[in-house]
Design a protein around this nucleic acid. Structure first.
Lengths: 245, 245
DNA sequence: CGTAAATTTGATGGTTTTCAAGCCATGTGG
DNA sequence: CCACATGGCTTGAAAACCATCAAATTTACG
């Protein structure tokens, strides 16, 4: 049971608890204004390993990540863990529980994080009172579906890692010259990409040998183009070709 | 362009075209009543290989399968095809295009099929006029997301094939004593499960050797329990639900 | 500092893919 | 009616890729 692990090097990013949305400590505007009301609630996950919700527990709410990074993981019948996804600010967590009674996966903080809670009761109200917001929510869910389907292909280890790096750079290296720190462990990355930890290390090593990046604690992408070329099949960059019926 | 391939052994199931929903030739009630109106339209895909919509073409509508079987496929940058899913009566096709301008995949008939068309314009209207139906649609999309995420794990060939068989039996062998015909080719099955065609054959052969099923043109499941046990990690520990909309 | 975890590298083996070939069913044309 | 072609299905042998096992090194944090 490593669910509530000890704090890590990311502890410094911890923030204070804040319960009212109208006193939201996050400067950036709430992505969909879903919870911009006095009764809205923001939750703090003060350290890595903190569980937001557990697999198979009753699903009463949806969450918007405001700060930090969460992962969603499932535990299959054999007890093997599987990282279904990583979630960064403005991402929604729990979209796959919308029509279900319980969460199909656990959500766990990868770094100290803050999330906005949107109760299902509030969602229910929104169906009649705020159709535009519901539409955005539907589009969000559809986008999550699109992304999940894109990842379900059959790709080599290098393609997977390249695609992962390209996405992480886009989300974490805003104007940092391709330099960023991966908040999750290699093991979580590997698990998410359906690879062994060692394979991820080796692929990163190979990329570094090619001069495509500097590996280590912080990554620095140096040859974005080459990585993107490798990742293209995963990303869905299309090229009209013959299609067997 | 092999988009519009020749008819197959399933041609006999073809039905006549019908444009008005109020004259719907399918006896079973429309799953969500989305298009139960005179202006609604039903489309016939008279033979296998017929394209409902193509990848990267503008997405103007959502479809409900009423009869037959469709597959959704993508063509990645390397020209490799990937079968993203199979769709049976009461399934929705195009949920992943809801917030997007164009379809992320092509939808192609696997057998002669009929589908109901729900335009995005109509969906737009429904947001203010029929909130309950929109809620059902959102739950549908969430369920599709759930299913897609469940398939994204790292499983052996036997687990994948077992899970596929269990699902197909649930959908195709209603009261037929575990006997049913797979409408799609082994190649499509293999592609969908991220395996080689030969691997699917070999696994089926192994299952048959064990006495778990009779393989061939029509499959007959004889040991449901053993297959389900193998598939359990993929299914997420839950029994497959009947009549997933 | 010292321990524990994370990361990295090396050697080996297993599952699946690839390549190759035969079989079977269906459909076509002589 | 039969020969032939086509595409799907099945099986066999070899190779590739990745996982597993093992161990050294580094990093984090008390």
């Amino acid at each position: 049971m490593a669910y509530d692990a000890r704090p890590t090097r990311h502890e410094s990013a911890a923030r204070s608890t804040c319960n009212a949305c109208n006193a939201c400590p996050v400067a950036r505007p709430c992505p969909a204004e879903y919870s911009r009301d006095p009764a809205g609630s923001m939750l703090s996950l003060p350290h890595a390993g903190k569980v937001l919700f557990g697999e198979d527990t009753p699903a009463f709410a949806l969450y918007v990540v405001r700060a930090g990074c969460l992962k969603t993981v499932t535990c299959d019948a054999d007890g093997k863990e599987h990282v279904r996804g990583f979630h960064f600010p403005d991402d929604m967590v729990g979209l796959d529980a919308l029509g279900a009674a319980s969460y199909p996966s656990s959500a766990i903080a990868v770094t100290p994080s803050q999330v906005c809670r949107i109760s299902k009761g509030k969602l229910q109200q929104m169906f009649s009172t705020a159709p535009e917001q519901v539409q955005r929510l539907l589009e969000c869910t559809s986008r999550a579906l699109r992304k999940s389907l894109a990842l379900s292909g059959d790709y080599t280890a290098e393609q997977r890692v390249a695609a992962f790096l390209v996405e992480m750079e886009a989300r974490l290296a805003e104007g940092s010259g391709g330099e960023f720190e991966l908040p999750m462990t290699r093991r979580d990355v590997a698990n998410h990409l359906r690879l062994a930890t060692e394979t991820v290390c080796r692929v990163l090593g190979r990329f570094a040998e090619n001069g495509w990046l500097r590996s280590g604690c912080v990554l620095q992408i140096k040859r974005h183009a080459e990585l993107w070329e490798l990742a293209r099949p995963v990303e869905g960059g299309r090229m009209p070709t013959r299609l067997a019926a």
